[in-house]
């Protein structure tokens, strides 16, 4: 059966091709412009940042030899003795690692609890008035923008050396980041249950408790777990300023060139972080599965 393919007239085709090429040209111009801006910014940043690739290439041997030096000397002949030698302070480091985890746990709890209480005040659909909303948002912003180490330094001066300063510093930082996320979660809820609760004459606290929280709880738990993961990393470095955890020993080992100690502590941190990552990922998937079902 003969079939006819409808043909486009040459004149129409020409105009279509011209249109197409115009669009392509415009897109190319845009890409070139973006690239040019990027190039200018890169050169500028490289000048300010004192970038010196030759310095890097001259000293890259330091970098590789550093990794060579921190490698433990493990022989097959006395393997277990070598490992024991490498991890000479295993119990001490293990205790500090547990400290780090607990600092992260308490900080997450503190931050998430505080953020959950304050987020309804910052959410557009719940805030009693614009002034309170603005204030709550600025407080969250302040807490997440000031780096946790700066808080840690101040708290170490105020509360003395130890984990308390680390917990408070990481907790305040988590409060800021989680506050923003919880606020967004609340802004995305279905308002009908809240209206229902309000219709029974509830006040602000009651409508938040019975209308809002049941809807956001699984999101909140998932964000809090994600934050815990990040806080384990932060908990491993606040020790640098004396705020508890394994960071202190790592810092001392790096500064005093106890090479094999560096690799021993780093390996412990890496394994711990990866295990926590995998575990919380599992938990989060379970939580999101539940959220989808209910």
């Amino acid at each position: 059966m003969p079939s006819t393919i409808p043909l486009v007239s040459p004149a129409r085709l020409d105009s279509l091709v011209a249109d197409y090429q115009r669009v392509i040209r415009r897109r190319r111009r845009q890409s070139l412009l973006v690239l040019a801006v990027l190039a200018v910014l890169t050169v500028l940043a490289a000048r300010i940042g004192e970038v010196d690739p030759s310095n890097l290439f001259d000293n890259i041997s330091n970098f590789t030899s550093y990794f060579g030096r921190i490698m433990p000397k493990l022989g097959t002949a006395h393997f277990f003795a070598d490992v024991a030698d490498w991890y000479w302070n295993a119990t001490g480091w293990l205790k500090l690692l547990i400290d780090t985890l607990l600092i992260a746990y308490l900080a997450t709890l503190l931050g998430a609890g505080g953020a959950l209480l304050m987020a309804p005040l910052a959410a557009a659909n719940l805030a009693p008035n614009a002034a309170i909303r603005w204030t709550a948002k600025r407080i969250f912003e302040f807490c997440r923008t000031v780096p946790d180490l700066v808080f840690a330094l101040m708290f170490v001066s105020a509360f003395g050396l130890g984990p308390l300063a680390g917990i408070l510093a990481i907790g305040i930082h988590s409060f800021g980041t989680l506050g923003k996320l919880f606020t967004e979660a609340i802004e995305n809820i279905d308002m009908k249950p809240v209206e229902g609760v309000r219709a029974t004459g509830s006040n602000f606290v009651e409508s938040a408790r019975f209308g809002v929280f049941p809807q956001i709880m699984s999101t909140v738990a998932s964000y809090a777990l994600l934050r815990f993961e990040i806080n384990v990393r932060s908990g491993s470095i606040v020790g640098l300023v004396g705020a508890g955890g394994i960071g202190q020993d790592l810092f001392v080992a790096i500064r005093k060139f106890y090479y094999t100690d560096v690799s021993a502590i780093l390996l412990m941190i890496i394994i711990c972080v990866i295990v926590i990552d995998l575990a919380t990922e599992r938990l989060r998937h379970q939580l999101s599965g539940q959220g989808a079902r209910s």
Binding site: I48, G49, E50, V51, D52, N55, L56, N59, I60, N62, F63, Y66, L149, R233, S234, S236, I237, L240, L250, F251, I254, R255, L266, I269, I270, V273, I274, D277
Partner: peptide, 28 residues
């Protein structure tokens, strides 16, 4: 996973030893 689990601050300590004090170490 491995390079992600080490915080940027610890990498900074290492790179200060390699390229010396200054922002270049921070960039790396």
């Amino acid at each position: 996973d491995v390079i992600r689990s080490i915080d940027a601050l610890i990498w900074a300590l290492v790179f200060v030893g390699v390229v010396g004090l200054g922002p270049f170490a921070g960039i790396l």
